[in-house]
Design a protein around this nucleic acid. Structure first.
Length: 414
DNA sequence: TCTGGGGTCCTCTGCCCT
DNA sequence: TCTGAGGGCAGAGGACCC
């Protein structure tokens, strides 16, 4: 085993840990529903259009997995217990876990609520020892199990944590090894026999393309000429896959990353056929997005709406403004304008609003069209203050479904 | 079987300007 | 004035991730 001489590997001197919570949403729910321990449990939307966001290992033993339609999960496992998600709670637990991780190194890059990379290069302890300590503290302080991958690069560490996870069985998860280390110098030998789907960035579409040229394992991918691979999957993607297959992944752990876009979307229980009903939803979604923009202290220039029709075909329409916005009213106005161009008569199952090209709102320059913006800014700030004091449900835009009769302005429920 | 919600990144196309 | 090439940018969509 070991690295062959004369290959294209770059020097990777770091030691990276990937920490991944086991069935995170379900694990958090089981802390407040201990009576459900040992049962097949899923977090997600139980309705006809809901999907599984997280499944317990007991549910996974029946073949249930995340992103699976709830209808199918029930068919596979009729006794499954569905719980609605509580994103607020998951975020709070996640933040506390990130604090634990930062007590080991300041170089922590959260990847999602339940995963993070840590750069522990230069630490006095052995990385596998750090991994065990992390597992112990997360379990003791938050009651949640996690798996840790240790390697010289992000992609390998992530694969390691996957291999350290428990296996689902009908009687509960089998004990995983907890910490899996990919030895330095043996990366390519470790990767070679593994399926290409273990590579970050190989989904169904790329897998189909690779299958057509006879590539099934990472070793075969590593040997495939780069120029021909680029012809099959595109230049950037080809280079990326070639590098990862050859264990080349010099991406550093970046502790602070600023968001590049923010969006909200909603799937309707039944398809919606009118601009008016969709417009009402756009107001609510725009309000949520704008509120988050202001909380994050950013504003965005490009407004995008997403429309998914009954047949699941999806379109987006976007418009880039002269100046960044963080006002729900301005955002909703722009979103409605974009929606006007879309024929919705066939029925819409999902609508979304997003903002990208985020920047500091201090750079805002008012155009003539935005002449009313200062007053809306005052309203937005007032709304934020009310929500800070009384919670996010304390006040809604007046034209949202929760706000009673249609009118302009804002309303307080109750 | 029938597909949530929130993101990132890449590619392609068309338009505008030089 | 017209035309083509090429770059930059916006918009749209695809693929992928958790």
């Amino acid at each position: 085993m070991g690295n062959s001489s004369g290959d294209s590997r770059q020097t990777q001197s770091g030691t990276i840990l990937h920490v991944d919570m086991d069935a995170f949403f379900v694990s958090v729910e089981l802390l407040r529903h201990p009576e459900l321990r040992g049962l097949p449990v899923a977090v997600g939307g139980p309705g006809s259009r809901g999907v599984v966001a997280s499944a317990s290992y007991e549910a996974r033993a029946y073949g249930v997995h995340s992103a699976m339609p709830a209808v199918r999960a029930r068919r596979l496992c009729p006794d499954i217990v569905f719980l609605p998600g509580d994103n607020q709670l998951y975020q709070e637990v996640s933040q506390r876990i990130m604090v634990i991780l930062r007590s080991f190194t300041p170089l922590v890059e959260p990847l999602s609520l339940d995963e993070a990379f840590l750069d522990v290069s230069g630490a006095h302890r052995r990385p596998d020892e750090i991994g065990q300590l992390i597992r112990k503290r997360v379990r003791q302080e938050e009651g949640i199990n996690c798996a840790v991958g240790v390697a010289s690069a992000k992609f390998l560490a992530k694969l390691g944590s996957k291999l350290a996870k428990p296996e689902p069985t009908p009687s509960g998860p089998s004990e995983g090894i907890g910490v899996f280390e990919v030895p330095v110098g043996q990366e390519q030998a470790f990767l070679a026999p593994r399926p290409v789907t273990d590579i970050w960035g190989v989904g169904p579409a790329t897998l189909a393309r690779l299958s057509r040229i006879g590539i099934a394992t990472i070793g075969e991918l590593a040997q495939y000429p780069l120029e021909r691979l680029e012809e099959v999957v595109g230049n950037a993607h080809g280079q990326h896959l070639h590098n990862l297959a050859n264990a080349v992944d010099p991406r550093p752990v970046i502790p602070e990353t600023s968001p590049k876009s923010m969006s909200h979307e909603k799937t309707f229980p039944r398809d919606v056929h009118t601009h008016e009903a969709l417009g009402t939803e756009l107001v609510a979604l725009s309000d949520s997005v704008a509120s988050r923009l202001r909380t994050a202290g950013v504003a965005g220039r490009t407004v995008t709406i997403k429309v998914r029709f009954g047949d699941f075909s999806t379109i987006t329409r976007s418009h880039t403004l002269a100046s960044p916005v963080d006002s729900g009213v301005v955002l909703a106005r722009e979103a409605k304008r974009l929606l006007e161009e879309v024929d919705v008569a066939s029925g819409v199952r999902l609508i979304g609003v997003g903002v990208s090209e985020l920047e500091d709102p201090g750079q805002r320059q008012l155009s003539l069209e935005d002449a009313d913006a200062p007053s809306w800014q005052d309203v937005d700030r007032a709304v934020d203050r009310i929500r800070d004091r009384f919670g996010t449900e304390a006040i809604h835009p007046a034209s949202t479904p929760d706000a009673g009769p249609r009118q302009t302005g804002w309303s307080r429920p109750g």
